[in-house]
Design a protein around this nucleic acid. Structure first.
Lengths: 335, 335
DNA sequence: ATACCTTACGCAAACGTTTACAATAGATTT
DNA sequence: AAATCTATTGTAAACGTTTGCGTAAGGTAT
């Protein structure tokens, strides 16, 4: 059928062993002449390696599987770019698997697609595995690493931003700009949303340090989606907040657009600082001030940790990008 | 090392042949009792199939490789969702490979990653292969199908929108709303951009039919990017156009934001109709009227055609979505 | 009773590689 | 001259699965 090393062996007169050694570049096992002859024959015959055979015998491969959510939010591209970069540097290949969106079955399919072949390791980009699927993953004894998600007390390793720090920094920034009534929108604080909890804790800490009493209607929970932003803003219009921290850029834009509908101006009537800092921030008017996560680096370093077999968690730095969605009050906007 | 059918065979007392037949469900070759015993043993041992072995012997697999560009534009997600849907229906798996952005090497890596293992077929999502890589693909004798891209006179099969129709429809729409000076921005008209050519032709046809003489500064070429939109608008501000058709949503938003910088109002000073109609259109203010492509269906049907081995090209329907970026002139906006 | 199916299973080859081990020839050392 | 080393190549086993072919037991038709 298709051309194999056996064909090359026949054509060149060498054994398949020699051909294999040349083709997989096991230096020191062949002469330059031999190598030339083999390579020449290979291109003439249009040889293409059959990785299935290689993976079968070596029980490893150079491909990293990346599992991503059918991305509501849009930062996965940056993470994947980082992954690709590092992978290319270490001459690894990467394949990407979509795990749907909170879809247990799709998640399992993606996982088994990865697991049922020899693979270097698995990178899980902001996917929260269902318990059953986590068991499946663990039982495979294949290295894995989570990116852009964190967990409490599980032994799982991840790289992400320091979400407590994010919550704290965003809040502090707003306070420094004279805000005292600050909302937090679009995330969850039940145990399943660890990220949400951390950000909320950082937010509360900053409030407390500045003697601001948290009011419960400042927190509008949600699922990081545009729609979360829209509905959150409806609630805020009944409150006295002057600024809100949004859990994702989409939430921020939801807030922004709901403001427009309500006849409110950003930043004059309401300030927004958003978490993520993807290019969406610069697409809307006004451009949104953001706590920008270093998604590229998450992917880059995460890949590195996966390959190195790191057993520790890591955090990437965030950066505050001032744009035009936060108003400065020179007097304290008191109670 | 990991558990194989041999282990199951040992445990159950059957031969590997029988175990294999049970596990791959070759009905008619085993009794129900046997099947139960085998399945029981399989879960007890934590058996996981080694696809490399299967693919090696069968020389096929149930995985479809999807190659995408490191997506400047953001419609790939919708296409991929469509692909996943159809694939799931036909119990195929899909893996996604990023081909970088106009990066010949990355493209080749993605291609060989797919090619060097048995695979059902390859879907190329809006990627324009370099000639060398196209040769590589063709020589592999693996089915492939292009999505969201079209070609002139090559024997390549694709599914996409009818780009001539898109150009025509958008132009006609603007004319019907009283516009006579209509720009087209963000695409190319050299031979390498076949999509751009088709849209331009449709645009010209609509102008001609309505006795409008095309002026060369109405066309601002570009590469479908946000930046293309920004620079195009700088040029338009020196012209008399009242409306522009943008080659992608990002181009549209670029135009929109440049208008803001220039102190121009959309749609009062300039109307925009954009091609693609992704969710970006609803994120900006004003929401952009669009020619919306059915990306989901492209993915869905494209997958179907790939599996069916279709040798024909196909076109999906587009839909005009009125939003708020086009102003209606009740008098003809004459020369 | 014979011939013929059917059902259920095992044997063994095959897929295309890699690699441990063995072998050869020539070069170098003693 | 013998011993040892080095460079190059070959032989064959192994990876885990699928599947054509063979076979044995039991059933059914004649």
């Amino acid at each position: 059928m298709s051309v194999t090393i056996k064909d090359i062996a026949k054509k060149t007169g060498f054994s398949v062993a020699t051909v294999s050694r040349v083709l997989s570049n096991k230096t020191g096992f062949f002469s330059q002449e031999t190598a030339n002859a083999v390579h020449k024959a290979a291109v003439e015959l249009g040889y293409k390696k059959n990785m299935a055979a290689t993976e079968l015998v070596t029980q490893t491969s150079n491909v990293i599987a990346v599992i991503v959510n059918s991305t509501k939010t849009n930062f996965s591209n940056q993470i994947i770019t980082g992954i690709q970069k590092k992978a290319a540097e270490m001459s690894k290949r990467v394949i990407i698997l979509y795990a749907g969106d909170h879809d247990q079955v799709a998640q399992k399919i993606a996982l088994t697609t990865a697991l049922e072949r020899p693979i270097l390791g698995i990178l899980l980009v902001s996917v929260d595995l269902y318990p059953k699927n986590l068991l499946l993953l663990k039982s495979a004894h294949i290295p894995f690493f989570f990116i852009s998600i964190s967990f409490k007390d599980t032994g799982l390793n991840y790289i992400t931003s320091d979400d407590y720090q994010i919550g704290y920094t965003a809040t502090k920034y707003l306070i420094n700009h004279g805000h005292r009534k600050i909302g937090l929108a679009g995330l969850g604080i039940d145990p399943s949303d660890h990220t949400g909890n951390l950000r909320f804790n950082g937010y509360q800490q900053a409030l407390t340090e500045n003697n601001i009493a948290f009011q419960h209607d400042w927190l509008q929970i949600g699922d990081y989606s545009y729609e979360s932003g829209l509905t959150a803003m409806k609630s805020y219009s009944q409150t006295n907040v002057t600024a809100v921290i949004t859990a994702s850029d989409l939430v921020g834009i939801g807030i922004l657009n709901q403001c427009t509908k309500l006849g409110l101006n950003v930043p004059n009537d309401l300030s927004i600082i958003t978490i993520d800092g993807t290019n969406l921030c610069q697409l809307v008017q006004p451009p949104l001030t953001s706590i920008t996560q270093n998604f590229f680096q998450m992917g880059y370093l995460g890949t590195n940790y996966l390959i190195a077999g790191s057993k520790k968690n890591a955090y990437t730095n965030v950066q505050l990008c001032q744009r035009s969605s936060v108003k400065t009050y020179h007097f304290k906007n008191s109670i």
